[in-house]
Structure formats: C-alpha cells, structure tokens
Design a protein around this nucleic acid. Sequence first.
DNA 1: TACCAGGGTTCTA
DNA 2: TAGAACCATGGT
Length: 270
Amino acid sequence: MIIENSNFILEHIASSGQCFRMNKIKEAEFSVIAGGKVLLLKQLEEQKVLLSCSEKDFKEFWKDYFDLDYDYEGIVGGLVTGEDEFLKKAAAYGYGLRILKQELFETLITFIISQRKSIPAIKRCVEELCQRFGERKTDTAANMVYYTFPSPESLGKAGKEALREAGLGYRDEYVRQTALAVAKGDIDLDCLKTLSYEEALKELMKLPGVGIKVANCVALYGLHQIDAFPVDVWIDRILKDIYSNKFDVTIYNGYAGIVQQYMFYYIRSL
DNA sequence: TACCAGGGTTCTA
DNA sequence: TAGAACCATGGT
C-alpha cells in the first residue's frame, strides 16, 4: 500500500540512532523489524512511501509505530523559521525525522547495549542477540527470513558466555539482570506507561546498567515521553560548544525530545 | 595503530 | 558530593 504523509523521510529515520533494526536495503528502500513483524518501505517521493504490509497491519501497528498521526510538520517548520540559528540548520537538515514508538523491552535492552558503543556496533550486537535468542520467522510478502527481538525470558536465562559472544562486552550482566527483572515481574514495564516522566525515570534507573541517559532514551523512544531530552556525548558537545551551557530546554516544552533528535542528527553530520 | 563510541558503576578524596 | 578510574569490543 502507498501512504502520503509530510515529514516522513526514511533515510533520516533509519540513520537517526533511535532504532537499531531499520536498515537500508538499496537506494530509497529500507526494512524494519518490530512487533514480531518485518516491513519493507520504499520512498517514492518526498511525501509518498510504499509499504509491504496490508492496510489492516498498517492501521493496527505501523501507523502508530511511525507516529504518523502527529503533526511534525508544524514543529519542524517552527524550528526552521525560528530564531535559533543552530536549530534552524538542524531542522532543515534533518527534515523528515520522527520519533518512533518502539516496544518498551526492546528499547530498554538496546539502549543498555548502546553505552560506549558506536551505532554500527550497536546494530551488529542487537542483530546477533536476535539471531541467537529471538524467534526465526519467514515473511512471504517480503520474501525474507528474519528474527524477532528476544523475550525477557529468553534473555534472562541466556548464558553469560553466549551474551559475550554476541558482543555485549561488560554489558552482559546488565542485560541479563534487567531481562530477568522484567521476566520475574520485579519491574512492570506496562505500569511505567501510567507514570509521569519523572516517576518513570526513577523506576527505570533502579535497573542495572540504566543511568540518566539510557533512562531518558527509554522514556523518549519507548514510552513516548516527548519531553525527554537524552544527553549523550554529542548533545553534550552541542550544549557546551554551541550554547556555552546556556541552552534553555524549557523553551521547547511539549516537544523537547524532537528538538534533541534533530540536534543529534545534525551534529553528527558536521 | 590509536582513538572513540547515543555511559554506568564504583572508588577516592 | 564531585570527580576519576575502570569496564569489553568494534568501527574508523
């Protein structure tokens, strides 16, 4: 099926460092694995995308996953015509970026893995985990064999050696213990969705390997707390070098996380 | 070959 | 309480 939507550029979303299982297949064509499904996408025009799924799957899952009901055009347009010179350039450069609504457990584990790793290394590591501990599936429409993201149970009972072989390094125990906590019900991920931003951060940071930065990424990409503003080494450089540590995030109340995403994407291109 | 990566935890002063 | 040291591994 074909959908038309403004501010939806696959190239930018796939390389924005918020999801690690969206890959470029060839020019303008991408695959993404989420929710136990695989989807192929092709950018036909700036506002036109071809999807391999049925209309039913689109309505029930992918539309929400790509947050297609939210008006990014208004926000990004506001930044482009705003007064902040850096954000003007960032918004123009990253036009088409959206904040995905990813599954909570996958977001939690992948961002625990992300610490002190480059994006290509994270993607490789996540794929390795899926192949070792996920479920093997075949999609006839996409003509693809793929692996789902592992369940909390399968990661919780994974051996330390197997996790090391997947390239987790010292994060192996973080992943195992966190997966175990979810599997045993020591933390109720669904319950996090009912909490405020601050309360959710507090709960997330009780988990091993989850500090303030990872918790903010989980809040933004997994809980869709759109005001979350994760500060990693790149954002930290911007706050210091561009804004002399005087950046006022409260100006962007209601969409700070989107601002953060455009900053991150732009600074990495420089 | 060095250096760095969407950091967190623990130790030390 | 703030800052330094340490952690394992892949990409460039």
